[in-house]
Design a protein around this nucleic acid. Structure first.
Lengths: 192, 192
DNA sequence: GTCTATAAAATGATAGAC
DNA sequence: GTCTATCATTTTATAGAC
């Protein structure tokens, strides 16, 4: 532990700044100039850290994509349908609360898809996976699909909503899990 | 009746094309060149109909904004809270189903806010209004606010979801009202 | 109402100095 | 690791012919 309180390196600050600007103006609405200005450096400095704008977008999305990926894999392992839904909902809400605007961006910004299209995993696949798990695999009925879409996009967007920015993590987590369970028809949990 | 089957005029086709491209690529991700190409005309022709890109965005959003405005005003007239919520939910779902992608755009695209910021009504005001009506005016509790946000953004996004594009209007309307009532704690309606 | 042509600015991106 | 300078392309937008 040679350095205490290390100032976040430029790459880290860059990604945090990019995420904030993406959530305010959208990916396509955010230029490298805006990111550079916000960081107090020039565009060329930004290009030292990332070869293209698409790389920045991918790097911003990466933690969310990775965690979402793991979550879907883990949730699918449960034998019972109810257990799968519980695991998925708890994990998804946890992800939303920890990343707030990022998961909302997945649900709403076409620029994310465009950037991820070139890399291995698009975001559209996850939406399908989430719906499949809660709505059931073979030809889920319309009600189940609508419910799943409303629940997960609603929860994701709520995490990024400015109106809820001041709500603390633990409270938001409980509220979102509560509303999710009601929607997905999961029984109320005993308060332990 | 001099002309039967009148071909939609350019202005109308332009707005329909713009809405489709906006929903696919976002407002900022859609250039006038893309709109012109899709219409089979030049950019200059597009500029004959609208002075700026912002004007196109406003014109695309206008019907939704106007109807949403009327809905909020009408819903607020009811004496009982339950009646206000019912009116708002029914009207909102109707709007979502008739416009599909447009209301989703309101919920998700920062480019819409940017274009509407200059004109009289931003879209942020509506979100507040919807939440106030269902969550109650004076300092609504967190649970009510979270529920309202999840419900309305979830319903709006579901209307624009490609996964539900093939669902017919009447079915989608029933499903969305159903999920909305469950979320907002409204009693199940008798099937009449 | 649509076209060609063009302007002015911004964008993503690179080369090379420090 | 950041800078200045520059480039090619694209973008929004206008002028004027048909």
């Amino acid at each position: 532990m040679t350095t205490v309180e290390p100032v976040a390196d430029t790459r880290t600050r860059l990604l945090a700044t990019a995420l904030r600007l993406f959530s305010e103006h959208g990916v396509e609405g955010t230029s490298l100039q805006m990111i550079a200005d916000e960081l107090g450096v020039t565009k060329a400095a930004v290009y030292y850290h990332f070869k293209t704008k698409s790389e920045i977008t991918e790097a911003v999305a990466e933690p969310g994509i990775r965690e979402l990926d793991e979550l879907v894999v883990e949730a699918a392992k449960h034998r019972r349908h109810g257990a799968r839904v519980d695991h998925l909902l708890d994990g998804f809400v946890d992800l939303v609360v920890r990343h707030r605007v990022l998961v909302a961006l997945f649900s709403s910004d076409p620029g994310i898809d465009a950037a991820l299209a070139k890399s291995r995993h698009g975001v559209e696949g996850f939406k399908q996976a989430l719906i499949s798990i809660v709505a059931g695999e073979p030809e889920p009925d319309v009600t189940a699909r609508v419910t799943a879409i409303v629940a997960f996009t609603g929860i994701a967007m709520a995490g990024g909503a400015p109106d809820l920015a001041e709500v603390d993590d633990e409270t938001l987590r409980q509220e979102l899990v509560g509303v999710g369970r009601r929607l997905l028809g999961r029984p109320r949990r005993r308060v332990c």
